[in-house]
Design a protein around this nucleic acid. Structure first.
Lengths: 175, 175
DNA sequence: ATTTTTGTTCAAAAAAACTTGAACAAACCT
DNA sequence: AGGTTTGTTCAAGTTTTTTTGAACAAAAAT
């Protein structure tokens, strides 16, 4: 035992609810649960990020389960997911070997992480399907012109999205 | 009976699978099912819109169930939803009393309908929660500065989104 | 007026998504 | 090494969402 730091509870049973969220934390959690719903993400992800966003000091997985009253499995998955998209940063806490995290607060990073993980894969799949659509046009049929026009239109939509997303990422950098 | 037009089937049993989708239609459906997944919408909504988008002539509910092999309930709900967000336009087909629809092809209208129905409600709820967050800041506590800074940051994010969405709608109008 | 066609609704069934908790592995400490 | 603590994984359980299908209502034809 060398540089022992507080943070660690008594010693014995500290497994039960350790709750005690501040009003501010509860509001933050509600806010990000709502945001998660808007993005069709699991509620637990919103809760976890809301907790981190409203907590000044870094938190470990165990603290997350204690504060939110969710299972270790959920917390682990949620943290992994948030970390994967760059919404949580790992932080070294001296004198404590647990992994600790804090919320990423750069909107640009949050947005690009989300886009990269949740949107880009669909966009790439869409590009492939778009190619197939073009090949499926039956120029011989009497509706050939119609089909060609539609295929061209969707293609232009994809070009639009491909241009708009980088703009959004760039603009988000100002916040 | 005056201006009788084709389009209507024989007369007797036409309920079974009437399938026969062109390759182009199948591709279109796959494309919009993928898009629906990207937006976390039900697969059936993607299928229905994909079918309309790839069909030159207007279709009725019954034709949708026949082509896609989905239940009348699903088709009805899906059409209602798409119509509500302005993705399907009702069209009069002379000599046929069924309601017929065609796909809306203006990206601006499609995008604003989606934003209006799926995003704006969450955004408004978020505004309310944002207000509560501001009130929840505990200026007395030692983390008061931290909380104030976070509340201000989220507020700036909301302002950003409030400005960015109209820009997107406007840009989408060019396609 | 009766029958047929068409569209909606909603309770129940099916499917998908999310959460839990216990078993496991890895790192740390004595 | 032996015993803790910490984090991950995944099968099973729970909840939510989506789909189905049958009953109902409305409009049109006979």
């Amino acid at each position: 035992m060398s540089g022992e730091v507080l943070e660690q509870r008594v010693g014995g049973a500290m497994d039960g609810r350790d709750d005690a969220l501040s009003k501010f934390q509860k509001c933050s959690i509600a806010l990000f649960v709502n945001a998660a719903a808007a993005l069709s993400l699991p509620r637990s992800v919103g809760e976890i990020f809301g907790l981190f966003y409203s907590s000044e000091q870094a938190l470990s997985l165990n603290e997350v389960t204690a504060h939110l009253g969710i299972s270790r499995g959920s917390a682990s998955e949620g943290i992994r997911w948030l970390r994967g998209m760059g919404a949580l940063k790992q932080v070294e806490v001296p004198g404590n070997r647990r992994e600790h995290f804090t919320a990423e607060t750069s909107l640009r990073k949050l947005a690009s992480g989300y886009l990269r993980d949740r949107i880009d894969p669909h966009l790439e799949a869409g590009q492939g399907l778009l190619g197939e659509l073009g090949e499926a046009v039956d120029d011989g049929a009497k509706c050939g012109g119609f089909q060609r026009a539609r295929a061209n239109q969707v293609a232009s939509w994809y070009r639009f999205i491909g241009r708009a997303l980088p703009v959004i990422r760039a603009l988000a950098g100002k916040f």
